[in-house]
Amino acid sequence: MSGTYLLNDAIISPLGFGTGANLQAIRNSESALKFHNNSRFFKEGYYAGLIEEDLIDSGFQRLGDAFLYTKLEKMIILAVDRVIKGSDAFDPQTTGLVISTTKGNIDLLARNKFTPDRLYLWKMAQVIADFFNLEKRPVVVSNACISGALAIRTASYLIAAGRYKNVIVAAGDLASEFVLSGFNSFQAISDEPCRPFSKDRKGVSLGEAAAAVFLDSENIGEGGDKIQYLDAVTANDANHISGPSRTGEGLFQSISRLMKANNVEAGNMDFLSAHGTATNYNDEMEAIAFNRGGLSQVPVNSFKGYYGHTLGSSALIETILTKHSLLDNELFASHNFTESGVSRDLNIIRSHTRKELNMALKTASGFGGCNLAMLLKKERRS
């Protein structure tokens, strides 16, 4: 088992700047999904969770010149800055940076006011690392929508190998026209706010956000409970470039291998944070995989009804929220859920609930058949 701890974190989203603001919005059952006009792709508009760049610039002005950075870079920098300011262990000479994104600065296509190399993921990561004067070269993780969680596993490996003393894992993606047109070509975007696992779901809603978390091998900081990252396992179902396995094989393999490797059983799980995109195939696949893994009675939610699908940042944001669920013994409702629309029983969380929590399972799936399952555990401190 890993000895890596999830310490300071930050979420920058339409629900607020900072994890605390985001948690309070979720407790108030608020959603970032709002109606937006876009006649180019959607004749009658669409729903998404978008952040006005003016709002980002307002928050960024205390840090530097907003005109020198792209919208996404500013979002990620805002998240990383909050994490650094809350950590005494940060050292630009020994702290690493792992960035998760699927498309990076893809919004710059055809209207790039920056140098052409700014479109490259490595360049975006280096710009962010340079902003904080980090001496070590940043690492980019880009593996579809498991990227945010995979970045945590990558960071844990790098710490264990002695490459870094500690690591900041950051993530971000935009709901750009490139992304919107891509999902629209699949006819996968709902004309209403998404409703994961619901019978009346119509598809995915997209969102944009950034997040960051500080990982360290030592349980440092003030007293109180801490959340330990135990392990994560990935598996690829090799089914289709965009469609998941109908039997949930890849996700089931991730879950079953993870539990076996860490000597835990389904009954040890207090909470399950699902991928839950509200598409017909994804939700059904997850329900089958959870059922095969003996998890049908574990309380489960999807956070997509609050944020939409934020691509490379989704699994990191949801891991941060899962961390705080464990710390606060708080289960959050699966927003917009109506009645079950999958063929296997699931214990969908319908209302915010207080419950003693010790261990959680976070799952994610993505295009190309990638799947990931991650274990988080509460470590109590007196």
Rank of each mutant, 00 (worst) to 15 (best):
N22S: 10
G104Q: 05
L63T: 05
R40N: 11
S242F: 12
M359Q: 11
M124F: 11
S31T: 15
A170Q: 06
G368Q: 01
F290W: 06
L121T: 06
L72K: 06
S242L: 10
S351P: 00
D65N: 15
T247V: 01
N291W: 11
F337H: 03
A238M: 11
F132P: 11
I99K: 06
A32P: 00
Q297T: 13
Y229H: 07
R137P: 00
I152A: 04
L78C: 09
I159A: 05
H309W: 13
C145I: 07
A287I: 06
A170F: 02
N239A: 15
L15M: 09
A212K: 04
G294V: 01
V264Q: 06
F131A: 05
G243F: 11
L346A: 00
K74Y: 10
Y47I: 03
L108S: 10
Y307K: 08
T19G: 04
L251T: 11
A161C: 10
K123E: 14
E318Q: 14
V264R: 10
I349K: 02
F67L: 10
R354H: 13
A211Q: 07
L376R: 02
A129V: 09
I348R: 03
Y281M: 12
G276C: 11
F42Y: 15
K362W: 01
D130C: 07
S325Q: 05
